[in-house]
Design a protein around this nucleic acid. Structure first.
Length: 258
DNA sequence: ATGGCTACGATCCGTAGA
């Protein structure tokens, strides 16, 4: 079982790259963020022709999330239940016995801003949601763009970023509160090279300089973490012309054993 | 030097991302 997540920054613009990537990486399920469209702008038919069904929580211009899968997704839940929010940032579904929650966490803009306050409120609501989900689903994966770099080693230049949005202590505390529910950062289950990131600024030759952040994550419940054999970032799509600013993150899970 | 790209929906710039 291969599970992946990718902030595509407009599914309309990125569709050709997405189809190429699906054919090359062949994930069984893929969480997408920043669709920037609602249906009918969502390319459902093209993805079905490529072998993937979709459950979609779309929004015009901003946000928008989906879960693609080879096998049908069931028990679809959009948004964070009980949390009033206009922004379409969450969709959950069960795929091949795994509860998959796709998240596009708020950016936060700047520490102290209204959007930063919203980000922290949003994370508190996510924690409550996941706390219930982990009780109900032994095999739980939470995948997406968290907009938090958990540690300094997830930041290309920790000094320059110190105290900034994405690395500030309240954001990192919100991240650790998710981990404390019993979710593991799959990337850190393995020895990893240094300076692996999942996002690079479009400006200032960010990718060429590897001036990035690791803010896209795949969190796994204990049962799934035990079955996890690899967790990687696939930088290949970021090298293409007109790329998303985020790269896909991928985990492989042993199946048929548990 | 606080800029710099990219996408969107509105025009020929403003908002947002991170």
């Amino acid at each position: 079982m291969r599970l992946a997540s990718w902030n595509v920054n407009s599914i309309k613009v990125r569709l050709p790259q997405l189809l190429e990537w699906l054919a090359a990486a062949r994930p069984d399920a893929l969480c997408l963020q920043e669709l920037k469209t609602e249906e009918p702008g969502y390319p459902r038919a093209a993805l079905e022709a490529a072998g993937y069904v979709s459950v979609v929580n779309g929004q015009k211009t901003y946000n928008g999330v989906a879960i693609l899968s080879r096998s049908p997704a069931t028990d679809v839940v959009a948004n964070i239940p009980g949390f009033a929010d206009e922004q379409r940032r969450v969709i959950a579904a069960t795929v091949s016995g795994i509860r998959v929650i796709c998240v596009y966490c708020p950016n936060g803009q700047a520490v102290g801003s209204d959007k930063y306050a919203y980000k922290l409120r949003w994370f508190a609501a996510l924690k409550e949601y996941l706390s219930a989900e982990i009780r109900n689903h032994d095999r739980l994966a939470v995948a997406g763009d968290f907009n938090v770099a958990p540690e300094d080693r997830d930041v290309h230049d920790p000094k320059a970023w110190e105290g900034q949005v994405h690395v500030s202590e309240p954001e990192r505390a919100a991240w650790r509160a998710l981990v404390a529910l019993g979710l593991q950062d799959s990337f850190r289950l393995f020895e990893q090279p240094e300076k692996i990131f999942s996002w690079w600024d479009y400006r200032m030759l960010g990718f060429r300089r590897n001036a990035g952040l690791r803010i896209d994550h795949l969190l796994l419940s204990a049962a799934l973490a035990r079955d996890c054999t690899a967790s990687t970032v696939d930088k290949a799509p970021r090298k293409l012309e007109r790329p998303s600013d985020h790269a896909p993150v991928v985990v492989d899970l042993k199946t048929g054993i548990s």
